[in-house]
Design a protein around this nucleic acid. Structure first.
Length: 189
DNA sequence: CCTACGATCCCCT
DNA sequence: GGGGATCGTAGGC
């Protein structure tokens, strides 16, 4: 049997964990695929939900590493994070749909595989993630996190949709993936 | 290709 | 009472 990534993997700096999550296969009730896009939100980050201190909504970010932090976005969507060191988390923005395509298509109401999990809200809808998963341990059902077999080529750039701390290149993606929420702007040099 | 905007909930000040 | 770590659609170029 394959073992899911556990607490030890996540009990580190979010800046180490985030790029290492690319290529890791995320399954929820057997549906999902390899993660292709994430963003890091650290413990002193004005863009992080934990920045203003502990509240009802963000309580999971102040708890143990290796748990899911799920929150409501714009009143409509859900977004999934993996908690790392306390007050930090990785936002899961996109994965490549490989397993359970029919279930994902049913929940999303679209057929195009490129529109199933390409964005944090779409990904949660496709995998059936909502409020009840907040605080759940990532190494227990319905979650499975399967270690990657090879290290993908990684690109990085500014995070999406934030207004604070926009200067940090803390968005990570698999180079050349067709399943990103949007292209990563090529880095300046 | 791009930009603009409405939907709709709930947390937080 | 304000404002999102978004998405889908509409319309312009």
């Amino acid at each position: 049997m394959t073992r899911s990534l556990g607490r030890d993997f996540f009990a580190r700096s979010v800046h180490e964990v985030a790029p290492e999550l690319l290529g890791v296969t995320l399954l929820v009730d057997g549906a999902g695929g390899p993660i292709v896009e994430v963003e890091a939100y650290d413990h002193e980050d004005p863009a992080s939900h934990s920045f203003g201190g502990r509240t009802e909504r963000n309580a999971t970010m102040f708890g143990s590493p290796g748990h899911a932090y799920v929150y409501r976005s714009y009143g409509i969507h859900w977004c999934l994070n993996f908690v790392c060191e306390p007050r930090s988390a990785v936002l899961i923005r996109a994965l490549e749909p490989r397993v359970g395509l029919d279930a994902m298509r049913d929940r999303r109401g679209v057929d195009d595989p490129r529109l199933l999990c390409s964005g944090p809200g779409r990904l949660c809808q496709a995998l059936g993630i909502a409020r009840q998963h907040d605080g759940f341990p990532l190494d227990e059902a319905p979650f499975e996190l399967l270690p990657r077999e090879t290290e993908p080529e990684i690109v990085r750039g500014p995070r999406v949709g934030i207004t604070q701390a926009t200067e940090h290149p803390w968005r990570y993606a698999v180079a050349g993936s067709r399943f990103l929420s949007r292209p990563v702007r090529p880095a300046r040099r």
